[in-house]
Amino acid sequence: MIAPLTMWDADASLGGRKVLDGADVQVEYGQLVALVGPNGAGKSCLIKAFVGLLELDGGVARLNGDDVRTLSPRERARRVAYLPQERHIAWNLPAVEVAALGAPFLSGAEALARAHAALAEVGIDHLADRGVAEMSGGERARVLLARALATDAPLLLADEPIAGLDPDAQRLVLERLRARADSGAGVLVSLHDLTLAAAVADRIVVLDQGQVVAHAPPMEALEPDVLRRVFGLDGRWIEGPDGPLLAARRVQ
């Protein structure tokens, strides 16, 4: 049985540089998979290939068994939600209107109801009517997460959703993504914080120069040799109050 989110032997290049090199990834329903790797490893490109924003030179990206290139935009959006790294919002819309953009095919009232539910899910329904220009970066990130959640798609891709957020907001965003996975969705999220990735993910995909160098449960994927080779870290995992913590220093 093929996993609902599957990439097989994917190659892609950007501006003459190879960004994906034979990448294989699978995400099952009910699973949260963290995608980690240094800057430029190809994490964003891998995610974009699943939503048709990056053309593969070879291999295939499948959603529920179908090649993403064969799906209409609407069918693709029905199957997968995408939360890009970019948090720029061009105009000062109220939060609820931004969240409602997650459901563009519903009637106005239904989309607003879905948007309010999604804002409540990320704990900011009380800010529903506030313009996004009057919000903090963390609040805006939550609004954009609510938009992705409002799609109600069974697969969710999030590209560095906690970058630039304070620790509390980081944990809240990851908790919400974890909750989505626990309620049956398949979630693929790219992260830089390895400790948080290990705490929240069922499996971790380690990407380096476009290649998948590990695809396993956290402790197995982020073993000392991978930490050294891929991240240049001399590290080990120690037991913390809420799970394993990475103690590491740069390899001299």
């Binding site: 609407r74 959006a77 995408y82 890009p84 919002i89 061009a90 105009w91 819309l93």
Partner: peptide, 19 residues
């Protein structure tokens, strides 16, 4: 509808399901 979706940028709009 497309103009409204473009508020969130090209990538979000392209993945939104709208043509």
């Amino acid at each position: 509808g497309g103009l409204r979706m473009l508020t969130l940028g090209d990538e979000t709009a392209a993945a939104s399901g709208l043509s």
